[in-house]
């Protein structure tokens, strides 16, 4: 089976979707002729023409707002916000319009759009190229939120998102674009060609939204993670020798609560890990759900390892990023509790 980077897998997902359905259109800043600042849309304009893949003005509200209008017409826009850090001008359109259109019109109009956004840190991106705003989307009724962690899932989840009848926020951890990253910034990065999840089938397949994947089976503690943190958690488990069960949530909303609850009931312990800031982050929701659903099985408090409650700094990148050492400490403390 061919191996692809996450960038190539994402591009392939759009290529497959555009080839199957001429209602799928792709646009955003630098997305057309140039093929995207991360190369995710390279070649699509040449293959499908300028009316299917095109450059947009630098106006995030305009990109999402026009996509909503296109979806109301009957197209299936898959648009890009260059960095998740720059989605805020579109937040009104996403939270009050895209998310509510089906509900407020009782299905008279719907909004089958996908909004792709490179997300996450670990790249010396500083304050506005590193943010993880997923909790600002999971709090919104009517949006689905997806965060893939590998090329195979990225393609299958993106095709599923494009085919989904509802608006999907598709957050792509840019730290994972070229290879998995476990937080050991001082070691060389392995490319996706050397990783089994870099195997990406040709043609059409989907990974269903709302289904988690167990990346490491274990019996001592359940780790809930997504995106880059999946690899950080794996490294922390190996380095501490703690037999952690690592769940890659893949979709934050709808959430695969059944897989989470079954695992925590088995292990009796739970550590939640994300890059986003701690307070009111998605980890708070996960922690609350585990507490509500697994209270009598818990042998320790649910722990959270997250970004500090500060803006994402530049020079202090590795003091901020929740790396394997911090996650490892949380695993040990949870086992000792």
């Amino acid at each position: 089976m061919p191996r692809r980077t996450m960038i190539e897998a994402i591009r392939d997902a759009m290529d497959v979707s555009m080839g199957r359905d001429d209602k799928v259109v792709v646009f955003g800043e630098d997305v057309g002729f140039f093929g995207g600042v991360f190369r995710c849309t390279q070649g699509l304009q040449a293959k499908y023409g300028k009316s299917r893949c095109f450059d947009a003005p630098i106006n995030e509200s305009g990109i999402v707002g026009s996509a909503i209008g296109m979806a109301a017409y009957g197209l299936k826009p898959c648009v890009e916000i260059q960095f998740a850090d720059y989605m805020y001008p579109a937040y009104d359109q996403l939270t009050q319009e895209a998310s509510r259109l089906r509900y407020r019109s009782n299905g008279d109009f719907t909004c089958p759009i996908v909004v792709r956004m490179p997300t996450g840190g670990g790249i010396f991106g500083g304050q506005t190229h590193s943010q993880s705003p997923e909790a600002l989307f999971t709090h919104v009724s009517g949006l689905k939120t997806v965060v893939p962690s590998n090329p195979h899932d990225a393609k299958g989840l993106l095709i599923a998102a494009i085919e989904d009848p509802d608006p999907v926020i598709f957050l792509e951890p840019k730290r994972l674009y070229n290879g998995p990253f476990d937080g050991h910034h001082d070691r060389p990065v392995t490319p996706w060609s050397k990783h089994e999840l870099g195997e990406v089938a040709d043609g059409h397949y989907t990974v269903p939204l709302g289904k988690a994947a167990i990346r490491r089976t274990g019996s001592a503690v359940t780790v809930l993670a997504y995106g880059t943190m999946v690899y950080v958690a794996q490294a922390a488990a190996e380095e501490t020798g703690i037999d952690a069960e690592i769940i890659d949530l893949r979709t934050l909303l709808p959430l695969d609560l059944d897989t989470i609850v079954a695992s925590v009931k088995k292990t009796g312990r739970c550590v939640v890990v994300h890059e986003a800031t701690l307070t009111s982050g998605f980890g708070a929701e996960l922690s609350a759900l585990v507490q509500e659903n697994c209270f009598y099985h818990l042998e320790a408090p649910v722990a959270r390892v997250a970004g500090w409650d500060t803006p994402y700094p530049h020079a202090q990148e590795w003091d901020y990023f929740p790396g394997p050492a911090r996650v490892g400490r949380a695993l040990i403390e949870t086992m000792q509790a």
Binding site: G69, M70, L75
Partner: peptide, 15 residues
Amino acid sequence: TQYIQAVGWAMASAI
């Protein structure tokens, strides 16, 4: 909000 959505709808018609 609907002002830009109208433009998107018109773009879709042209597309």
